[in-house]
Every structure is written in structure tokens, then in C-alpha cells.
């Protein structure tokens, strides 16, 4: 029970302190919206193209939102040494890192619903399977957050975290089937696509919105869950190795 008091308060503090920080607004909210506007205008297909664009936009919003929050909540606090307070608290490292990442998972999830809210006014979303969509968005948020955690633990400065994040995030826009089918990606790049969790997450969201998933949804869910576990435990190991020297 005592550990959960700590968990809840770390989460609430991060949400209160960091959600409206400039990197989260610019990278987490504005960037995906600008990106969508660009695709929408470029396609010239009008509002009927929105269901096709939506899965990519949602995945993009989650990815940029979740990774941006982590670079602030973890890297910023590590730099200012306030993270030491958390390491000194009598809570397990696993629970501590879950507390630090839950804020980012929620931010990423909320981010995904910003484009949905906008789309609700201009497109017909009656065919969306929300029972698949919601868990898929959460899973994409979890995997993106743990990717952000992996990055945040590897760097020292907030700007390094943002730059290093972009090293992963920008290629993922093109490699993970967000706006272009993986089939259209050059053959030699496809193994890279299938090595990235967002490919599977986007496929699930696409399946939920248009029914146009390429892989079996069960396989998609399984792979994303495995990626989440892998990234979380690697990050934990890195925290243990690098920060408790």
C-alpha cells in the first residue's frame, strides 16, 4: 500500500509538472497535427481520405507524445539530480520506473484521441472497432514510452534525448507503415520495418479503423507485448547499471 502511495504521487506530480512543458506541446501535440495537415492537403482527396490517414496519425501522435514526455520526466530530473530522491525512496526500481512511465503512457494515449476528436466532426467513424482500437492505442503508447525510456536512460541532456529520439522516430514514420504500406518500402528495408514495434501497433489500429490490417491481429498484439517487456527490462537493467554505479 505504501509503495502505491509513492507510485500515485510520482505519477500525479509528473502530470502536473510536465504535461504542458514546451517539448511536449511542440513535439507531442503540434508536430503530429502539422504532419497530418500536410498529408491531408497533399493528398487532395478530401474528408473521405481521413479514415485511411487516421491510423498513421494516431500512431504518430502516440509515438511523439510518449517519447517527448519521457525525455523530460526522466532526463530532466536526472540532470537536476532530483531523480536521486526517487532512487533513495524505499520503493522497488520496477515500480519507480512504472510510475515514471505511466504519465507518458497516459499522455501518449490522450494524444491519440486528439486526431480522433477532430476526425469525428469531419468523417464517418461508425465502422471503427473501438474494442480493438482502445487496447491497441494503449499498447502503442506503452511500447513508445518504453522506447522513450530506453533513450532517456542512454543520454544526459534533455536536448540529447529529443535528438536521439528523432533518430528513431523519423525513420519510423516511413518504415512502420504509418502513411505508406510496408509493401511499397524497398525490399532491403523491410526487415527493419518488422523489427520495429510501431509496425505492429499501426497494423492493429488500421485493422480497427478500416479493417485493412496486413498481419493477423493476434500476432500483432503478441509482438507488441513482447517488445514492451523487452524494452522495459533492458531499460531497468540500464538504470541499474548506469545510475546506481
Amino acid at each position: 500500500m505504501k509503495s502505491w502511495i509513492a507510485f500515485w504521487n510520482i505519477l500525479v506530480k509528473d502530470m502536473r509538472s510536465y504535461y504542458l512543458k514546451p517539448p511536449n506541446i511542440s513535439w507531442g501535440l503540434l508536430f503530429p497535427l502539422v504532419w497530418v495537415a500536410m498529408f491531408f492537403i497533399r493528398s487532395g482527396l478530401g474528408f473521405e481520405s481521413i479514415p485511411d490517414l487516421l491510423p498513421g496519425v494516431m500512431a504518430l501522435s502516440v509515438l511523439f507524445g510518449a517519447t517527448s514526455v519521457l525525455s523530460v520526466t526522466v532526463t530532466f530530473e536526472k540532470k537536476g539530480r532530483s531523480f536521486e530522491r526517487l532512487l533513495l525512496a524505499p520503493i522497488s526500481l520496477e515500480l519507480l520506473m512504472l510510475a515514471k512511465t505511466t504519465g507518458a503512457i497516459l499522455f501518449g494515449t490522450i494524444n491519440a484521441f486528439v486526431p480522433i476528436l477532430i476526425a469525428l466532426f469531419v468523417a464517418d467513424l461508425s465502422a471503427v472497432n473501438w474494442w480493438i482500437m482502445v487496447p491497441a492505442v494503449i499498447l502503442v503508447a506503452v511500447s513508445s514510452t518504453f522506447l522513450g525510456l530506453f533513450i532517456a536512460v542512454s543520454v544526459k541532456e534533455v536536448f540529447e534525448a529529443q535528438t536521439f529520439s528523432n533518430f528513431f522516430r523519423f525513420p519510423m514514420i516511413f518504415l512502420c507503415g504509418l502513411f505508406f504500406p510496408i509493401a511499397s518500402i524497398p525490399l532491403f528495408l523491410r526487415p527493419l520495418s518488422y523489427a520495429l514495434p510501431l509496425t505492429y501497433g499501426t497494423d492493429i489500429i488500421r485493422g480497427a479503423v478500416t479493417g485493412g490490417n496486413v498481419m493477423h491481429l493476434g500476432l500483432d498484439f503478441l509482438v507488441v507485448i513482447l517488445f514492451c517487456l523487452f524494452l522495459f527490462f533492458v531499460s531497468l537493467k540500464n538504470v541499474n547499471r548506469k545510475w546506481i554505479t
Binding site: M1, K2, S3, I5, A6, W8, N9, I10, K13, S17, G80, R81, S82, E84, R85, L86, L88, A89, P90, I91
Partner: peptide, 29 residues
């Protein structure tokens, strides 16, 4: 254990009162 490090490492964006409440919460209070 209580620790006061050589640098004051509380949270600059929180008030004094909120900082103390947050630190107490880390110990399950």
C-alpha cells in the same frame, strides 16, 4: 535513512509545501 545531498535537489517547479508533501509520499505517508 534520510539524505540531504550536497546540492539542494528538490523540484524547482513545486512550492516548498508541495515539495515536502511529495517527499513524504515517497515514504508512503
Amino acid at each position: 535513512i534520510g539524505v540531504v545531498p550536497d546540492e539542494s535537489n528538490l523540484y524547482p517547479e513545486l512550492s516548498g509545501f508541495d515539495n515536502l508533501c511529495f517527499c513524504a509520499s515517497l515514504y508512503g505517508i
